[in-house]
C-alpha cells in the first residue's frame, strides 16, 4: 500500500515523516501520473489559494473521481479547505468532496495561532480510536492540536461524523473514506492516531 502526499506546496514533509514513522510507504504527488500510483492521499497544510492555482484541471477531475470512488484521503488545514463544499472568508472554489462548509482564517492572523493541548474526542472519535488497538493511542480522551491560521468548520452534513472538538466546534471529522482535521496532527505531539486512522483505511 502506498500513501501519497500532495506535494505542490505546504508542510508535505511533515506528513511524509509522520506516515513513514508509522511504517507507511510514502510517495510525493505533484502530477496526475503520480496520483494514479497511490492508494490514498494526504492533503497537507499550506496556502489553499496557492494550491488551487497549482492543481491542474485534469488532476482535480481525477482526484474528485477517485475520492468519490472511495480512495482514502486525509486532509489537514488548507487540505480541508480544498475538500469542502463551501468556503467563506473569502469565498473560493473547492472540490466538494466533503459535505462541510469552512471559514478560512477563522481564528485570526498568525499572532492568534495556538496550541490546544487537549482537543476532546467525541463518542464517535473514541470508537474510531478503538479500532486502532491499545498501544497506538496515548490517550482516548484528547490529543494535542496545533492550529496555525486555522479554518473553522461551520456546517457539517448529515453523513459527516465529528470525531473531535475544540471550543464546541468540530476540528476532526470523518465522512466515509475522508478524514479531515482543521489543525495539524502532523505537527502535534502524540497525535499519531490521526495518521494511523488514515493508514488503516488504505
Amino acid at each position: 500500500m502506498k500513501a501519497g502526499v500532495l506535494a505542490l506546496q505546504g508542510d508535505f514533509e511533515a506528513h511524509a515523516k509522520r506516515l513513514r514513522g508509522l511504517g507507511a510507504a510514502v510517495i510525493y504527488v505533484k502530477k496526475l501520473s503520480e496520483l494514479s500510483a497511490v492508494d490514498g492521499l494526504a492533503l497537507p497544510g499550506g496556502e489553499s489559494t496557492a494550491m488551487l492555482k497549482l492543481l491542474e484541471p485534469n488532476f482535480i477531475e481525477a482526484l474528485i473521481e477517485r475520492g468519490r470512488a472511495g480512495m482514502p484521503i486525509l486532509a489537514t488545514c488548507a487540505g480541508v479547505i480544498l475538500l469542502a463544499r463551501k468556503v467563506t472568508n473569502p469565498a473560493q472554489r473547492s472540490l466538494d468532496l466533503l459535505d462541510i462548509d469552512v471559514e478560512r482564517n477563522a481564528y485570526g492572523r498568525q499572532v492568534d495561532s495556538f496550541v490546544d493541548g487537549t482537543i476532546k474526542f467525541t463518542m464517535a472519535g473514541k470508537s474510531a480510536l478503538d479500532s486502532l488497538g491499545q498501544g497506538a493511542v496515548p490517550s482516548r480522551d484528547s490529543i494535542e492540536g496545533v492550529f496555525i491560521r486555522a479554518p473553522r468548520i461551520i456546517r457539517t452534513g448529515p453523513e459527516v461524523e465529528v470525531l473531535a472538538e475544540h471550543a464546541g466546534a468540530p476540528v476532526l471529522v470523518r465522512s466515509k473514506n475522508i478524514l479531515a482535521a482543521t489543525f495539524h496532527p502532523e505537527l502535534s505531539f502524540g497525535a499519531e492516531s490521526v495518521h494511523q486512522l488514515f493508514i488503516n483505511s488504505l
Binding site: 505542490l8 499550506g46 496545533v146 496555525i148 491560521r149 495539524h184
Partner: peptide, 17 residues
C-alpha cells in the same frame, strides 16, 4: 516551546511556495 512551534509551523506551511 509552543510559541516556537507555532512560529516555525507557519514557516513549514510556506514551504514549496
Amino acid at each position: 516551546n509552543n510559541e516556537i512551534r507555532l512560529k516555525t509551523g507557519l514557516a513549514e506551511m510556506l514551504k514549496g511556495g
